[in-house]
Design a protein around this nucleic acid. Structure first.
Lengths: 163, 163
DNA sequence: TTCAAATATTTTATATTTGAACTAGCTCGC
DNA sequence: GCGAGCTAGTTCAAATATAAAATATTTGAA
């Protein structure tokens, strides 16, 4: 070992482990940047917080509503968290709590007509914003990335991606 | 064209706008799932919160430390937020506040030796966790996705991805 | 039946997190 | 110099967020 290795000024090739760490940091920074942008636009244009919008978006897809556990799993937030967000949406009369007869432990939450109308007014604009913020991605890129991300969240949550 | 079009039960082809919205939801769910998993492991194994770890990771790359604004921009969180996290890290003696002479408005924060040692002990394990959680992605996928995400966060924050 | 374990939700305590207001210090045109 | 405007940080109130404990209910095995 008498010959000194040439110092790599820009090591483009990293071990896969470091590269994945790098990817994770990019993923996190990107989703935070998008979240921040959407949060601000929702607040300015519609006076709604991002978590409230997320909940309404989830409920808008289910006319019959959804119970709290399903909602918290869908949004990847803790169950206690959902209670508070729903409390505020109920106070604003955007969401309705209903006790199902089959299971008296559960609570079904559902958009009120007012809530549905509110969401409908926001949804198209919001979709446009996202489309704009992600305009870097061509149609093929989008499909590729969706393919890669598909199911990963659920797999991680259920312990499939580690063991 | 007298034949009625077969109803598409699974419309794989969506308008690009909807597809990008779909991608955004996947991105958000995935990063939340990863965050939740890392948060729990950090808490159980090291008794550190995720934001505290993120700050330490950022400071670990800069021996001379960093001012608060730069830190908040790097982590994509509000400046007021960083103050609280740093407060706790300072209380734990992991981080040190120092007033630079050139600019008396600014505060330089830096890891203490204790903080640096603490982070070093966590970093390798953490990298392994991320590597495991993202094991779905092959080396090529990782490079591709990094390429796509590279700079997007900054572009969005600076208003480049919308206008 | 019966009761231990599992499930669904809320409550509580604590920690983030944001956005706005506030303090203090810098900068630069005049 | 000097004052308007910009920059750096902290503080504050309100909303979010987690984890753990508490409640209430359902399920399933003995």
């Amino acid at each position: 070992m008498t010959v000194a290795a040439k110092p790599q000024t820009r090591p483009r090739i990293r071990p896969p482990s470091k590269q994945r760490l790098h990817l994770w940091i990019r993923l996190l920074r990107t989703s935070r940047a998008i979240e921040a942008e959407l949060r601000e636009r929702l607040r300015i244009n519609f006076g709604v917080t991002l978590p409230q919008f997320d909940v309404m978006a989830a409920l808008a897809r289910k006319d019959d509503g959804m119970n709290m556990t399903k909602l918290s799993r869908l949004l990847m937030v803790s169950n206690g968290n959902v209670t508070g967000i729903i409390d505020r949406l109920v106070a604003d009369k955007f969401v309705l709590r209903k006790a199902p007869v089959e299971d008296r432990r559960a609570i079904i939450v559902r958009l009120t007509p007012k809530g549905a109308a509110r969401f409908a007014a926001m949804a198209k604009i919001h979709e446009g914003w996202v489309n704009q913020l992600l305009s870097d991605f061509g149609n093929e890129d989008v499909d590729t990335m969706i393919g890669h991300l598909d199911g990963l969240a659920t797999r991680i949550r259920n312990g499939g991606a580690h063991a």
